[in-house]
């Protein structure tokens, strides 16, 4: 759908069935699913950071990033399994491979990435099998970004208006939020002498995140509302303040241990808030028929007008003359 179609939606004039939602609210739960989005991103961006740290001779940062990645991905898999309606059947995820299902693609990605991230961390912590550790580090670094990015398709490939309509921007927002979190955690955990790549990643991530967010809100038109109101709005706002504060602090005082740690903590928190905000915005947009009906009605009216080449009915009025009861009886 093009942007101008949404901007033309009249604010309150839409029909509905007793104000009830047209689509189902996602049954995915909080904190499990937004938590997974955050942890998966944190892990997925920590792995390339770990590889960069390792191969640029920063073992402290490499160890921290590998441990973070393994811990985060382990936790996130627990969250995913626990959110299933039938957790004992989690392995059914690997019955088939379906490119039309982001969840299927993601399950396969996780089963490649998870063990690699785990092995990389295990070798780094124990100091055993350094060669295998290097292979695992590279494997996790290569698959990690895909883990951080695919969750955008997972949300966007739904009927949920605030997620689906954001399908162009969400992948970029998700990877930048992931970079913010991974860089931020590096700043928090590692001494500034070793933390340069984490600081750089955090700066790039936070800047990109702020940009992606404002693009998303601009492009969504009316469907941006769920991101700006209620619980989601408060979370997104808090995230933005934390991102900006963390970004500034990391840029200015990132070489001071205390300031760097504070900046890092703010950035990690901002990434989590962003994920929760996006999650709740989607839920809200699904629960309010306005966001489903408004853009569709508008699109349909435009199509119908095009088809029949006549001028549109006034907004909110029935398109055609209503039926009389007598006519109905006659038509039987």
């Amino acid at each position: 759908m093009k942007r101008d179609e949404q901007l033309m939606v009249p604010a309150a004039e839409f029909g509905s069935y007793y104000g009830r939602p047209v689509i189902k609210e996602p049954v995915w739960g909080a904190p499990a699913i937004p938590g997974y989005l955050f942890l998966g991103g944190l892990a997925g961006a920590s792995s390339p950071l770990a590889a960069v740290a390792e191969f640029s001779g920063r073992p402290g940062l490499a160890l921290a990033a590998k441990t973070t990645a393994a811990g985060a991905i382990g936790l996130s898999v627990v969250a995913l399994v626990q959110d299933l309606g039938r957790p004992t059947r989690f392995h059914h995820m690997l019955r088939v491979f379906k490119p039309t299902s982001p969840m299927s693609v993601g399950s396969w990605l996780l089963s490649a990435y998870g063990p690699a991230a785990g092995a990389a961390a295990a070798c780094a912590i124990t100091g055993l099998l350094p060669a295998a550790g290097r292979v695992a580090t590279v494997a996790a670094a290569v698959t990690g970004p895909a883990v951080a990015a695919y969750t955008a398709a997972l949300l966007a490939d739904t009927a949920v208006p605030a997620w689906h309509e954001a399908h162009r921007e969400l992948p970029y927002l998700f990877v930048s939020s992931a970079a913010t979190a991974a860089g931020g955690l590096g700043l928090l955990l590692v001494r500034p002498e070793q933390a340069a790549p984490a600081r750089n990643l955090a700066l790039i991530g936070a800047t990109a995140e702020l940009t992606a967010k404002s693009l998303l809100l601009q492009r969504l038109g009316e469907v941006a509302e769920p991101y700006q109101s209620g619980r989601a709005g408060r979370l997104m706002e808090a995230a933005e303040i934390l991102t900006a504060a963390g970004l500034t602090a990391a840029a200015v005082g990132g070489r001071n241990r205390i300031i760097a740690a504070l900046a890092g903590a703010a950035l990690v928190a901002s990434s989590a808030f962003t994920r929760f905000g996006i999650f709740f915005a989607g839920r809200m947009s699904a629960g309010d028929p306005r966001y489903t009906v408004g853009p569709q009605r508008n699109r349909k009216d435009r199509k119908d007008r095009g088809d029949r080449g006549i001028s549109p009915p006034p907004a909110g009025k029935p398109a055609r003359a209503p039926a009389e009861r007598g006519d109905l009886a006659a038509a039987r």
């Binding site: 997925g44 961006a45 390339p48 950071l49 590889a51 960069v52 740290a53 191969f55 640029s56 490119p99 982001p102 670094a141 290569v142 970004p145 895909a146 951080a148 990015a149 695919y150 955008a152 398709a153 966007a156 490939d157 399908h167 162009r168 969400l170 992948p171 970029y172 998700f174 990877v175 992931a178 970079a179 860089g183 340069a196 790549p197 984490a198 600081r199 750089n200 990643l201 790039i204 991530g205 990109a208």
Partner: peptide, 21 residues
């Protein structure tokens, strides 16, 4: 289209990590 954006976003993340080092 979503997969294409996911792929370029993932590539951008990898590139950002490399640049950071």
């Amino acid at each position: 289209r979503m997969w294409r954006h996911v792929a370029s976003a993932a590539a951008a993340l990898a590139a950002a990590a490399l640049i950071s080092g």
